[in-house]
């Protein structure tokens, strides 16, 4: 008689799968120094253009600091879109998706590994963007509460990558739509999140836009981080953002799990899990 795996064994297998997927992501993304340098240097081109635009229209230097933080957070959004949401699409195109499907681990552990590897990789790049931005554009920052910065940053990433896991399941059955949808979710999210604005929750920004932007966890996290590192705010003034980010995680993570199961089952029924070149 063959007995099923114990909970402990099952958990161990899933953690090992997450670690393995994280290791592949870390190793794969950091083996090429040109790619690493370009992922840090390229956003500086766009950030630089916005900093000069701010200067042209007479906005203060702190607005430049806001755009550097926004540019760094955009690196995470790009990673979520192209390396989380579209990942099952890439894996299917390369013939790996069926291997994940037959592996004796939860697909969530693979997504968790991707998220951990992706967030670590992007954190390195985001740090590079911020440091290079400060060096090139000489913008002022004032951090009075580093613990809160770390907390908000961690919560923002957790919420953002939970959203990435949800998208990954929704994108699972996509063909060329995956590419186009990921493209579509770039600039509109940069706009709605206020990544390149001095502040999204400013009175001049229409209320409807602020509400729409608040549906994206990055908007909430970005606003809190900016207030902490540019205005020198403390945890007492950003607790609503902290609560909102925790709520996002509690909603998005279970939703991603349900969605993944549903899409996997749908894919099996329709025979679309191994389709390529759609």
């Amino acid at each position: 008689m063959i007995s099923g795996p114990t909970i402990r064994k099952d958990l161990s297998n899933n953690l090992r799968a997450a670690y393995a997927r994280m290791w592949v992501r870390l190793r794969g993304s950091n083996r090429d120094p040109i790619a690493l340098a370009s992922e840090i240097g390229l956003p500086i081109l766009t950030i630089g253009a916005y900093v000069i635009l701010y200067h042209a229209i007479g906005l203060p230097a702190s607005a430049g600091a806001a755009v550097i933080v926004g540019g760094a957070m955009i690196a995470f959004w790009t990673n979520v879109l192209w390396n989380m949401s579209s990942q099952w699409f890439w894996e299917r195109e390369q013939g790996n998706l069926e291997m994940y499907m037959v592996a004796p681990v939860s697909r969530m552990s693979i997504l968790l590994g991707m998220a951990l590897g992706g967030s670590l990789n992007t954190a390195i790049r985001a740090l590079g963007i911020v440091l290079l931005g400060i060096f090139v554009f000489q913008v002022p920052f004032q951090v009075r509460d580093p613990f809160s910065v770390g907390l908000v940053f961690f919560l923002t990433l957790a919420a953002l990558y939970s959203l990435g896991m949800l998208f990954a399941s929704l994108f699972m059955l996509y063909g060329r739509e995956a590419w186009n949808t990921a493209n579509l979710l770039q600039e509109p999210v940069y706009f709605l999140s206020g990544a390149y604005f001095p502040a999204i929750y400013a009175p001049i920004v229409p209320f409807g836009l602020q509400v729409a932007g608040s549906l994206i966890p990055m908007t909430i996290g970005l606003d809190a981080i900016r207030r902490l590192v540019i205005n020198g705010a403390s945890i007492t003034s950003i607790w609503p953002e902290v609560l909102a980010l925790i709520a996002c995680i509690l909603i998005l993570f279970p939703l991603a799990r349900h969605s993944l199961n549903y899409m996997e089952s749908l894919g099996k029924k329709e025979g679309r899990l191994t389709l390529r070149w759609q």
Binding site: Y54, I57, G58, L59, E187, P188, F191, F197, P198, I204
Partner: peptide, 27 residues
């Protein structure tokens, strides 16, 4: 729709920066 949304969002980003600039500047 896909063709328009991306450039329109790019435009709105810079337009809002200018509108924000106009709201705080003396020019």
């Amino acid at each position: 729709t896909y063709q328009i949304i991306r450039p329109l969002a790019s435009l709105l980003i810079v337009a809002f920066i200018v509108i924000i600039g106009a709201s705080v500047s003396a020019a």
